[in-house]
Amino acid sequence: MTLSLGKDLLGLEPLSSEQIGLILDTAEPFKEISERAIKKVPTLRGATIVNLFFEASTRTRVSFEFAEKRLSADAVNVAASGSSVSKGETLVDTARNLEAMRIDMVVIRHGASGAARFLADRIESNVINAGDGTHEHPTQGLLDMLTLRDRFKRLKGLKVCIVGDVLHSRVARSNIWGLTKMGAEVAVCGPRSLLPNAIDDLGVTVFTRIEEAIEWADALNILRLQLERMTAGYIPSLREYNRVFGVSRERLERGKRDVLILHPGPMNRGVEIDSDVADGPFSVILNQVTNGVAIRMAVLYLLSGGRPELAEAAKHAGGER
């Protein structure tokens, strides 16, 4: 039986290491397409895709849109504002209306955990989770892993520490599931008030001192700290956060070895990450963005029924769907 992803990509928790490996491997040939002068292959010609974004997003939406266009799909963007959603339409009605237009795939970003699953359970089209509440952001997890694999040529045994607001982070959850399934060692580092109370049961190491995390890790994945966390009383101030948990060049230089720096963006320079780290020699933050398009192309391709062995062929001229 050929390995497949099933109908939807809702998260990395339900996937096997083989399925995750399949996506990462399928992304490899797609990387090259974005380096061409004419960045387009006909792989998804005729497929209609809706990018349904209930939360503001630039990076993820544009990344999906480029992935769709480079595969020749017809993509439509629906933003929550200006649509019937802002007039009080329920998610289930939105879903049914989209389905009635005979679309092939929906990429959904939504503020409620479980929203992608909710949609997937109710429509026939493929559903890709582009971030649901504080649950998962699987394509971000995948592009982070692809970026790590590019640099280290392996994931197994790699030590990755996720730094910051793990409690509210869908990126953290997808990274924890994906990396642990691929055999990496995962740690988290942040104030206890921004770690889930049950973090110790998730199979990760917990560091409460950033210096220890830097000492331990091969790579740091630094999460964005939302300003609201301060007003909601989770931390005293952004200033203190930076003093205690901010990743600075000084802290990195005190470590014994080089540590790769990832950040899912958008960055708060001077809060969770200092500029000279973000722009420094060990930062792969822009590589993550480049890989994001390849990962999303791979996911779209696999969910549309594309066979992994044909991905390489699809790269060369006229692959049929």
Binding site: D132, G133, H135, E136, P196, A198
Partner: peptide, 15 residues
């Protein structure tokens, strides 16, 4: 409930 399931599902827990 606040616990391992709420941590996994990304839902705010009630302790």
């Amino acid at each position: 409930n606040e616990g391992i399931v709420s941590a996994r599902l990304g839902l705010k827990g009630i302790p």
